[in-house]
Design a protein around this nucleic acid. Structure first.
Lengths: 213, 213
DNA sequence: ACCTGAACACCGTTCAAGT
DNA sequence: ACCTGAACACCGTTCAAGT
């Protein structure tokens, strides 16, 4: 690192890392390929070797985001393993909401429709790695009778869609941040047997969901 | 209209109309202020009088989108007025899904987090006009006992979030288009009393979701 | 194999000047 | 009040040339 050699060494990950940081700080609109190259100390034409396109770099960020999300799910599920299913479910739900809320720009990138046809294959795989985590959770919940019946994929997608919708509304300031735990608890509860959503459902106050004071 | 005069007449709405069309055809990325001005037959500096910013124009499009959405809700609810509540609910849900699915780029614009602070007031009002429609529907459903209990705002937001999440996933090709009706029916059913979501619920296949007998 | 740097076409924004 | 057109700084993309 004393004197930069002609070859950067790992320009691809350097660009990706810097891009992720810029994304978090300035959103997608603040992301310029040229500035990225400047930040990393390389000429503006250099990124071309690693990303054919600006869109390609954005797609790679989205793929990375899905991998991190899958990781987050796995970690949350592992952390609550052995505890009653509702706790596991709500922990995973909170993990998603937290992740989505802390990385709004990344989430938008992941769930934006302008992905390249070529990248969509890899992106699809990456997204499925997240969905599979949810599906596994649904399977677990159904086999112990805590979760509502129905096709795994259908229940899982409903769960995912609810959480995604809630965080999306929160990220656009359409629901207050402090209503997030209650809404999350409510959504989760609506899929649990014997926990038909009603006012005062305690889930929102559970450890993990509460987290206010 | 024979020879364009110096003053355009209604440049603001002309720009907005053209922008909406371009948005539908080419997405947000295909929207250039200069091209817009060209298309409308005006110099590239002209839009400045009506939109201080490109972002301001985008915000106006989003506001317009929320107004159209509120209209869509009202129309669907009026069209099913008098029929059993589940029918009304599913009609409204289908109306949302259809609207969101037919205007993916507009939806992204509406639920994107990069709105200007100044526009957010008007946007908030416009968004609330949509949410109020949903709240009214929830109120109706609860007072006739068909809809799950809970605070109106909470149930309404859950409903909205579910539908928004589902369409968002559909618009990014993460769920198959042909699974949309079933998923929508499933989501709607999960908020109806005595219609606990289960495999084979007929909701999705019926006209509008129907299947209420 | 990887990077540079000039070149090109296109932006968004600003602002004096025109009508 | 509304629009024009030159000017400016910045892009993304391409490609010969360098190492």
């Amino acid at each position: 690192m004393t004197e930069r050699p002609y070859h950067h060494g790992d320009l691809r990950v350097a660009l990706l890392d810097r891009a992720e940081q810029t994304l978090r700080e300035s959103g997608v609109d603040g992301l310029s390929l040229r500035e990225l190259a400047r930040d990393v100390g390389v000429s503006h034409g250099a990124p071309r070797r690693h990303f054919r396109d600006k869109a390609a770099l954005l797609d790679s960020l989205a793929v990375e985001g899905f991998h991190r999300l899958a990781d987050t799910f796995a970690r949350a599920a592992a952390g609550a393993a052995g505890r009653p299913f509702p706790v596991v479910l709500s922990d995973v739900a909170v993990a998603y909401v937290t992740f989505a809320t802390e990385n709004p720009a990344l989430l938008e990138l992941m769930f934006t429709s302008k992905h390249q046809a070529e990248a969509s294959a890899e992106l699809h795989r990456a997204a499925n790695s997240s969905f599979d985590q949810v599906a596994g959770l649904v399977d677990l919940g159904q086999s112990c009778g805590a979760l509502v019946d129905g096709e795994v994929e259908q229940v899982g997608m409903t769960l995912f869609a609810m959480l995604h919708g809630i965080t999306s509304l929160a990220n656009t300031d359409m629901i207050d941040r402090d209503q997030l735990p209650r809404l999350t608890g409510y959504a989760v509860g609506s899929l649990l047997h014997g926990l038909a959503p009603r006012h005062g459902t305690d889930l929102g106050a559970a450890p993990g969901l509460a987290g206010t004071d």
